[in-house]
Design a protein around this nucleic acid. Structure first.
Lengths: 327, 327
DNA sequence: GTGAAAGCGCTAACAC
DNA sequence: GTGTTAGCGCTTTCAC
């Protein structure tokens, strides 16, 4: 591997000049040409590690998500990546697997590797961010909020729960169950609250507690809860799924029981990107996943560039796509 | 951020000793204790950038994939990640978006960041690996093979095409179309060849060219091709989808036309992780995505540890899961 | 077993 | 505008 010294020698300039050429500071046109030439000949690639060590920061940001196999998060990752790479930053995707220890490991790596910032969808509301905050590195929370005073991008979770439920009510369903993620995750709790309000207002006589289930935010969670709900003496006639994967699991179980969607009403909070269902059978509350990624990345980049304003939280809106199109 | 000098001073030893403690070389028990104590007090994290610069290699491997939103590749990524993190390596996931320029950029970054190796599912058979090979860094090709003499992990693509087709033939279908990815990607070509052989052997009178379509490996590719096939004067009575996303697209279009699966036969090469279909309606050839990732990561780690044997290619088998279970 | 010291490749004062 | 030089924090000979 050629170094700036090799290039400097071949170009007949000093190493500092080579560095300047690759960093856009003022150098005379002839020297620029000479340096570029020499660099080309030696197929020189600047050593990022050395630059990072010297500068104490690298053009890399970490994106920590709880489930890399969930299309919701990969869509978000795309948003982050697009903005970041536009600005010359690379993104390293870290899968915490919803485990706080893995999350902590990645946060440690982010510090040790001098990454410029991190965007995190926390695994748990107990996530500790103190060490990374102590280093002064910018961090933005995405999807889920934290107890820290940091930038955040969230969506209207409660409204999503309400819209999904109302759509089902309007379609004539009544015993509308709710299957959500772990209660200790704020998005899960808020969506449930939305369902609770909407359904309680419409049918105050219903026993809401009997109709709600909290599970993992995964396909198996949706399956287990749906099986459980179907085994009730008086099963629900519709269900709101707290995220895309729960929705998939619930629909799978319904299909296996011969209860294909509009038969039992289904509303999903989140898109079903790979659904093979007829699109009109299920209500979908589209979540602005990509947009959240884009927004979070922009906020982070501003902070990296030195923005010092007080922490902000941006709330993005969702878009309801009803099961049967109305006039 | 504390450095080894700070720790050394507090522990009353030399910086070299601190380094030894964190690298497992022989140090007396008392000094080890003193160093660990001091490190704890200062909440010292070794600076990876400095270590990388000095050692000229870092415990990071790059995984370059063409589509981060495809569950097939994220499943593969999980396999890589599990093996790597077990061995103390981090994985950075790079999304090439099936574009050779993005791929080249990531390869350049892998070199510039001193990563120890790369696992790549190439975007195109024309992918240039020369620069990275010139650095001597190990590289293993996964999913798709290359023209270079490097380690590879692939699956039995041709056999997958054959099995999928045969299963449909056994179920009584005859005009079985094939929708695959771009012909210049070897996996796509081989799977098509498998279909061609199986179908040609069973029904030599069919015009195979009229029944095949090459599209992108994405949902929209499957949709476009399926629409096209349905508009034929004599439409197919079944279809083999060349990958999971094409399968989703094809099934969506069929459903929209009121031709829900067993009505038109469907076999998909690849799993449908988030399908909401009844599981018995579609033949699925399960691809060993996770296993490929695991295998590739193991091979790469061996190379990183200095293994010098000639390049190997491992071929993994698939598993057919027929539409309707047979005795 | 332990310390002193050189240097990985780069950048940023600081002189000129 | 350009060169000289001193480190960034670590590992690793080389002595002892």
């Amino acid at each position: 591997m050629a170094t700036i010294y090799d290039v400097a020698e071949l170009a007949g300039v000093s190493p500092a000049t080579v560095s300047r050429v690759f960093n856009g500071t003022s150098v005379s046109d002839e020297k620029v040409a000479a340096v570029r030439d020499a660099a080309e000949k030696l197929s020189f690639t600047p050593n990022r590690t050395a630059r990072t060590l010297r500068r104490q920061s690298s053009e890399v940001i970490a994106l920590v998500i709880p489930d890399i196999e969930n299309p919701y998060f990969t869509e978000m990752a795309r948003g982050v990546e697009d903005v970041a790479s536009e600005a010359g930053y690379s993104v390293v995707l870290c899968n915490s697997d919803a485990q706080m220890e893995k999350e902590a490991t990645y946060l440690r790596i982010a510090i040790a590797e001098h990454m410029s910032g991190v965007i995190i969808a926390t695994a748990d509301e107990g996530t500790k961010l103190d060490t990374i905050l102590a280093t002064g590195r910018p961090i933005v929370a995405v999807d889920r909020s934290t107890t820290y005073d940091i930038d955040g991008v969230v969506m209207a979770n409660r409204a999503a729960g309400t819209s999904a439920t109302k759509d089902l009510i309007d379609a004539g369903y009544r015993r509308i169950a709710y299957i959500g993620g772990p209660e200790h995750i704020d998005t899960a709790a808020e969506r449930a609250a939305g369902w609770r309000t909407a359904l309680g207002a419409a049918y105050p006589e219903l026993d809401l507690d009997a109709l709600q289930r909290f599970e993992t935010f995964r396909v198996d969670g949706g399956r287990a809860a749906m099986e459980d709900l179907l085994s009730l003496p008086e099963p629900p006639d519709a269900v709101v799924a707290g995220n895309n994967l729960i929705g998939v699991g619930a629909i799978q179980v319904l299909t296996e029981h011969g209860l294909t969607p509009p038969q039992v009403g289904v509303a999903v909070i989140g898109s079903l990107p790979f659904t093979t269902l007829s699109p009109s059978a299920v209500t979908v509350v589209r979540l602005p996943a990509r947009h959240m990624g884009v927004t979070a990345a922009r906020m982070l980049l501003e902070r990296i560039k030195g923005d010092k304003q007080p922490a902000r939280t941006v709330v993005l809106r969702n878009e309801v796509q009803p099961a049967s199109p109305r006039a």
